[in-house]
């Protein structure tokens, strides 16, 4: 089996598994919606304030939803032993891991993107900023999956890795949050955001190129 063959086989397998277990797609999405509805309830119905902090609310919720969905990335494969097969295969583990991350993003990151415009309208974000919100989510959520994969790979062998995972992963998410939140806020005030978008793209490309290696190394450590 060639490398590209294996790559796409893993993506197809993971998508198929997710389709069979639809709760894995639905749960992070429901969480995302629920957290965002909590804010207006907690702050009170103050449209001005909500509109001002809408980019931050949506991005923080997306961050938390992405983090909660991370556990499904390697957990079932670790439990049933297919992770060992991936590591043992003749192909480089980092490439196969990248396939798993891409499949995971398609299942958990992409739905957030589709749901976000609705929630932005919920929070009264101006029309002009919604396009920018989608662009930052498109560039940012893959980074969340890529960086998160390192954290999951480090903790997948632990019995109670959940809390630890957030401690490891959230600090590394901060740059994405800063630049993405800032871009949306600038856009809703009608200011240029080329710099933020360029930096987000740079972060995406860097993590796309670099994150699979530590993930593969950490997986090898976790299953040994």
């Amino acid at each position: 089996m060639s490398l590209s063959h294996a790559f796409f086989a893993i993506i197809r397998r993971d998508l198929l598994l997710a389709l069979r277990k639809r709760s894995e797609i639905a749960n992070p999405l429901l969480f995302f919606v629920l957290v965002i509805t909590l804010f207006p309830l907690g702050i009170g119905a103050r449209p001005q304030l909500l509109q001002a902090i809408a980019p931050g609310i949506i991005w923080v919720s997306a961050l938390l939803a992405a983090m909660l969905s991370l556990d499904s990335l390697f957990r079932s494969d670790f439990d049933d032993g297919s992770l060992e097969q991936i590591v043992l295969s003749p192909h480089p583990t980092s490439v196969l891991v990248l396939a798993k991350i891409i499949a995971h993003w398609l299942v958990t990151g992409l739905p957030l993107l589709l749901m976000a415009p609705l929630l932005a309208v919920f929070l009264g974000m101006p029309q002009s900023a919604i396009g920018m919100l989608l662009l930052t989510l498109l560039l940012g959520t893959p980074v969340l999956s890529l960086i998160g994969a390192i954290g999951v790979a480090l903790t997948v062998g632990l019995r109670r890795g959940g809390m630890l995972l957030s401690l490891l992963v959230l600090p590394l998410y901060v740059p994405v949050l800063i630049f993405a939140g800032n871009a949306v806020e600038m856009a809703s005030n009608g200011l240029p955001v080329t710099a933020q978008i360029n930096i987000l793209m740079a972060i995406l490309l860097m993590s796309l190129a670099l994150a699979p290696w530590p993930t593969a190394a950490a997986l090898k450590m976790s299953i040994s």
């Binding site: 390192i150 480090l154 632990l158 890795g161 630890l164 401690l167 490891l168 590394l172 530590p214």
Partner: peptide
């Protein structure tokens, strides 16, 4: 730093823990 300390404490086998901590520190 706290993540590094937490991860080291969570893994029982100290040689494995050192490996994990090194990967995390390098990413940071």
């Amino acid at each position: 730093y706290l993540g590094v300390i937490g991860l080291y404490g969570a893994i029982d086998d100290k040689r494995t823990a050192s490996k994990a901590v090194a990967i995390l520190a390098l990413v940071g």
